[in-house]
């Protein structure tokens, strides 16, 4: 969790320095969900996330070097500089992508779960999205089919209170989002996501159910992002007081106090934090020094079948 936090703080700094372009959506404040959920999985499981994807990718085992390099648009990035912040992919670690269109990946994630059922393997798919996605058609069609076919998937709605700048009170007729999933015949669960152990335990229950063939679950997890929707968002739609109140439930602070309560010394925690600092600063240095994204990868990666353009001349009009 601390790695994700520090990784993203450094990413924000690099963004301000102009080393990262495009959109950058930070996960700061929501870390307990990615880490808790990833801990409930095993090899062969797959995970789909929105464009707010750095946290889950790191939690699943992507290296900070490859993640930072992707943000810097480098060839050593998790998606070789083709995806950027919104489109991390790390198939080896089960991460099937950061997806850029709200609701667009929900049915696709259900497709990965469909494959598990079709092939008769016991893998499970996690599909993350925000509360804003629960209003779009793609979400409903994905849930509808997953419920109908009892697919081994867990839908995790990270309700961070704002769909970009709009609070849920102005986007949804109901505030308990598990009600939306009830109509698709699936289990529902709803809890606050500030304590990583709770997240792991509750997601584990849903994952186990899916693995046993008992169908999908929809989980709504209450959370809060401390930063704006993206780097360009000063978050003027919420008050300073609200933010400060929410920061009292910072999952990192909660975990830290849990650790000291359990007998871990502050020195030991410091050591972990220092190790993280080194990893993150090494990742930034490596990303800075890495080769820029390559033209040949850009052309080569479009299709598996080699009938497309191989260079600029062939790709022009």
């Amino acid at each position: 969790m601390y790695l994700i936090r520090r990784f993203e703080e450094e990413a924000a700094r690099a963004y301000a320095q102009g080393k990262i372009g495009g959109f950058l959506h930070l996960y700061i404040g929501q870390e307990a969900i990615a880490v808790g959920a990833a801990a409930a999985l095993k090899d062969g499981d797959t995970v789909f996330q929105t464009y707010r994807d750095h946290g889950i990718s790191l939690a699943l085992g992507s290296t900070p070097e490859a993640c930072m390099a992707e943000l810097f648009g480098k060839d050593t990035g998790v998606s070789r500089g083709m995806g950027g912040s919104m489109h991390f992919f790390d198939k080896a670690n089960g991460f099937m992508g950061g997806w850029g269109i709200v609701g667009g990946h929900v049915a696709v994630a259900a497709g990965a779960a469909f494959k598990a059922k079709y092939a008769g393997d016991d893998s499970v798919t996690l599909c993350f999205f925000g509360e804003g996605a629960t209003n779009i058609g793609g979400f409903h069609e994905g849930l509808s089919l997953a419920g109908l076919w009892k697919l081994p998937i867990v839908f995790i709605c990270e309700n961070n209170q704002y769909a970009m700048g709009t609070p849920m009170s102005r986007t949804s007729a109901i505030q308990d989002l598990t009600l939306k999933a009830q109509g698709y015949g699936m289990h529902g669960d709803r809890f606050a996501g500030y304590d990583v152990a709770t997240v792991r335990e509750r997601v584990q229950q849903a994952v186990d159910r899916a693995r046993k063939g008992e169908g999908p679950t929809f989980i709504e997890i209450e959370t809060y992002r401390f930063r704006g929707h993206s780097m360009s968002d000063p978050a003027k739609y919420r008050s300073r007081a609200e933010l400060e109140e929410r920061k009292k439930k910072d999952p990192l602070a909660i975990t830290k106090s849990q650790l000291t309560d359990a007998g871990m010394s502050l020195e030991a925690i410091d050591e972990v934090e220092e190790a993280v600092e080194e990893v993150v600063s090494a990742a930034v240095k490596a990303a800075d020094a890495a080769e820029p994204a390559k033209e040949e990868v850009m052309f080569d990666s479009v299709m598996a079948t080699k009938l497309g353009p191989k260079n600029r001349e062939e790709a022009e009009v």
């Binding site: 696709v108 259900a110 497709g111 469909f114 494959k115 079709y118 069609e141 994905g142």
Partner: peptide
């Protein structure tokens, strides 16, 4: 979408 996810995972 289901088809795309299934294709991504080997079908």
């Amino acid at each position: 979408g289901i088809g795309i996810g299934a294709a991504m995972t080997g079908l």
